[in-house]
């Protein structure tokens, strides 16, 4: 039970990495959600005993490797976001899907702001507002994921709330 499920988590993370490595270009690139982070948030809220800050850190490191960025920059942003996801995880059952979506959007924004700050330290310039569009699309992706999983068996409050709305 334990091994199969954690393997499922790693598989889904690998799939997310695969999605982000697809040859995106143009407006697709501008809108591309952070697949790995969305998947991580999904699992952090769903199965915090299997997917924790360490998992997020490893995933971030993998992203750093794949993109050739500064080693550890994404790992740092991911573990910080995972921290916020984990400390509020117990309270999430009280929320319905729109409220959860806000929470997820905020988490994705935390990731992007951390990445932005690290970049600014390295001497980057402040980007346009559409730098934050991936947070929005990521939230939408999370809503889709949540609705899909809620139609099956869901341990959190997502399912009951979905039925209500």
């Amino acid at each position: 039970m334990y091994t199969t499920k954690s393997r499922f988590i790693y598989l889904s993370l690998l799939l997310a990495l695969f999605m982000s490595m697809l040859p995106w270009s143009g407006s697709g690139l501008m809108l591309r959600p952070d697949f790995v982070m969305v998947t991580l948030i999904f699992w952090l809220c769903r199965a915090p005993h299997l997917c924790n800050i360490g998992t997020a850190w490893m995933a971030g490191l993998l992203i750093d490797l794949a993109t050739g960025g500064l080693f550890g920059a994404n790992a740092f942003a991911y573990s910080l976001t995972a921290f916020f996801a984990v400390i509020y995880q117990r309270r999430l059952t009280l929320f319905n899907i729109p409220q959860l979506a806000l929470f997820v959007g905020a988490l994705l924004a935390v990731t992007q702001i951390t990445q932005l700050l690290l970049r600014l330290f390295a001497g980057g310039s402040i980007p346009d507002w559409h730098y934050f569009l991936p947070s929005l699309t990521g939230t939408l992706l999370w809503i889709v994921l949540a609705l899909l999983s809620a139609s099956g068996t869901a341990p959190t409050g997502a399912a009951s709330n979905k039925r209500r709305s």
Binding site: G60, L61, G72, A75, F76, S79, L118
Partner: peptide, 11 residues
């Protein structure tokens, strides 16, 4: 993990 990533970034 923050310290670990900061060390990595520095290295």
């Amino acid at each position: 993990f923050s310290i670990l990533s900061l060390v990595l970034m520095g290295v």
